[in-house]
Amino acid sequence: MTIVEKVRTICPFCGTGCGMELNVFQGKVVGVTPDWSSPVSEGALCVKGQFGTGFIHSPDRLTTPLVRQNGELQEASWEEATTLIAEAFGKIKERYGGAGFALWSSSRSTNESNFMLEKFAHAVLGTNNVDNCSRT
């Protein structure tokens, strides 16, 4: 009897890109089984992929935007946070142009998020200063 739901996905812990199934019970990831059909890993995983899911439901996860007020990061809504960014970036763009920005993307985030950051940099902020953490 299978009591967990299995969702086929990719391990987030290194460039090997092993296939895995997240085992989900009542909305929580409880474990991992390998994706035997993955041509990359053919059923193998390493300690991080197999056992490293603890962080997903960590109580330390950020659950809401934070905005710095009087020197402290305070909880805010998406609307407040994004409005603040839009205004501040607007001012920087007016004064410095695209050269006033840098965007550092993540080698851990998805292709789609990386593409969006690239588009945002070029099309909205007018800068080509986009880099990622490939050199670390």
Binding site: G31, G43, A44, L45
Partner: peptide
């Protein structure tokens, strides 16, 4: 190395996470 591959290959419930 705690790769867990013994758990995954085991055909019974003898090895579990």
């Amino acid at each position: 190395t705690f790769c867990g591959q013994c758990i995954q290959t085991c055909p019974t419930g003898a090895l579990l996470d």
